[in-house]
């Protein structure tokens, strides 16, 4: 019943950059998410499920990202997710820093899947060296790759890499599901089936039976999440998807109430492990199951991998696994791992 994350969860960590066939477009600065959402919403209407899903061979890059200017936002982010005050940009913050560029890829007219209604299935991140507030020469690149079948549609990886002083500092792979789409020549498939795409190793594997028989471990923490947590994380992450902001917005997409950002819950688990235990270089994975409805109460087990009988990263000293579920019910919300590299 233990969530285990295998090595190589982020695919190649060599930092090869976008696939060689991709054209890299340099942007002057990170785009504003507001405008991207507007384009994404409009574009989504046109992006109907069709038989041929082909990803644009395109990457966006911004060199010389201003990290100094992100100071107040970093402080606000740290308060919301519970990171201790620090000038080091945590993996969660690096994710939100790169998020507009990944979104820019997804709102391209030739990106075949609609932005609205995409479901964040899982996220795998490696931080290889710390990025600090005020660091010069920070470069962000994002692209989409590896479209593949999912039993409910098509899943795709949005990859973001962040270089600091020419060295790869961060690589994040966010896997999204577009429901209803299919790939040419591939039938509906279960996720994570044998076949070895890069992210299959990143999926927490449940030992033994399938997900229906998941048994919650003894909790180590309880989060009481108010309605305000959606707008609060929306403000610090820039992810103001209406499903997180209000009941009304959520109902429009078929949810009974507003739902918490998956990345908020994963970032909070990352923060609870804390900088002292994850070190400067670490892996952080998350898999998202049922969304957390707001307000809501989530029970967590954030445990030493050794106590959980899990082997997070072969050769890694220590490491943590975490599980989150609805308080009092075996309804699973998220699972993942944090391990020093």
């Amino acid at each position: 019943m233990i969530a285990v994350t295998g090595a190589g969860g982020v695919g190649s960590v060599a930092g090869a950059g976008a696939p060689p066939s991709y054209a890299v477009t340099e942007l002057a600065e990170l785009p504003a998410l507001g405008g991207l959402y507007a384009r994404g919403a409009v574009g989504s209407v046109a992006k109907r499920p069709r038989a041929d899903v082909a990803l644009p061979p395109a990457a966006y890059r911004v060199t010389d990202v201003d990290t100094t200017g992100t100071g107040p936002r970093l402080a606000a982010y740290q308060r919301v997710v519970g990171e201790p005050a620090s000038d080091v940009l945590s993996a969660g913050f690096l994710h939100v820093l790169a998020f507009p560029l990944a979104t820019a890829v997804m709102v391209r007219p030739d990106f075949p899947l609609g932005l609205l209604g995409m479901v964040h299935l899982r996220n795998a991140v490696r931080v290889l060296r710390p990025v600090r507030l005020g660091d010069d020469g920070v470069e962000v690149t994002a692209w989409a790759e590896n479209a593949r079948a999912h039993r409910r549609g098509v899943q795709v990886d949005l990859v973001a890499e962040i270089l600091a002083a020419g060295e790869l500092a961060y690589r994040g792979v966010s896997t999204y599901l577009a429901k209803g789409f299919t790939l040419p020549g591939v039938g509906a498939a279960e996720p994570g089936r044998p076949g070895g795409s890069a992210d299959d190793g990143a999926r927490p594997r449940t030992s033994g039976a399938g997900r229906d028989s998941w048994v919650p471990p003894l909790p180590t923490a309880r989060w009481r999440l108010g309605k305000d947590i959606g707008p609060a994380y929306g403000a610090v992450s820039g992810d103001r998807n209406p499903i997180h902001l209000s009941s009304l917005g959520a109902k429009a997409f078929g949810f009974p109430r507003a739902i918490a950002h998956g990345m908020y819950t994963a970032a909070r688990a990352l923060a609870e492990v804390g900088p002292a235990r994850r070190g400067d270089a670490y892996e952080w994975t998350a898999e998202f199951f049922k969304p957390v409805l707001l307000p809501g109460s989530v029970d967590l087990a954030i445990r030493y991998a050794s106590d959980a009988g899990a082997d997070v990263l072969p050769g890694s000293a220590g490491g943590f696994v975490y599980d989150g579920w609805r308080t009092g019910r075996a309804v699973r919300h998220l699972a993942g791992a944090v391990a020093p590299l």
Binding site: P219, A221, R222
Partner: peptide
């Protein structure tokens, strides 16, 4: 403060273990 669990809930987990 760090766990959000009450002292009673914490003890209940130890009790069960």
């Amino acid at each position: 403060p760090r766990t959000g669990l009450s002292m009673g809930e914490h003890q209940a987990i130890t009790t069960a273990k």
